[in-house]
């Protein structure tokens, strides 16, 4: 079992896919990591030997921001926007999209689940 910064990598998957279980590493970065360390992309995690694993861990800790560190950085950036009170900060506070998307409908990712309002006037058919 390979553990990198507190994340268990699945044993039965290819290295390329396994590395993406870590927050902050996608397919592209995973490919880069493996290529730089001369490890076959299609090699499964259980087939890695200790040396290869050590190489990967060393590379990641040296070059890439992952997991908690990355999360705190993102939170800090959002907090900065909120504190200076610029337009993007205000949108963050309201929980609305930041980049000028429409909000008449859609944008449910930012707004969350639909909240129906009770006692809203209904159109009465004659």
């Amino acid at each position: 079992m390979a553990i990198i910064s507190g994340v268990n990598l699945p044993n039965n998957k290819k290295g390329l896919i396994s590395l993406t279980y870590i927050y902050g590493i996608g397919k592209n970065t995973a490919k880069k990591i493996l290529e730089i360390n001369n490890i076959d992309i299609n090699k499964k995690v259980k087939d890695w030997n200790q040396k290869e694993l050590q190489k990967i861990i060393k590379y990641i800790t040296k070059n890439i921001k992952i997991e908690g560190e990355l999360r705190t950085e993102i939170q800090y950036n959002i907090k900065r926007l909120k504190d200076i009170g610029c337009y993007r900060g205000i949108r963050h506070r309201l929980g609305l999209p930041l980049r000028g998307q429409r909000t008449k409908n859609n944008s449910r990712t930012r707004k969350g689940k639909r909240k129906t309002i009770a006692n809203k006037k209904k159109v009465i058919k004659k």
Binding site: I84, C86, Y87
Partner: peptide, 15 residues
């Protein structure tokens, strides 16, 4: 204007 605001535009701060 504070230090954090550098790089933004003036309009961003007056909705």
């Amino acid at each position: 204007i504070t230090e954090n605001m550098v790089g933004c535009k003036l309009g961003e701060f007056s909705p």
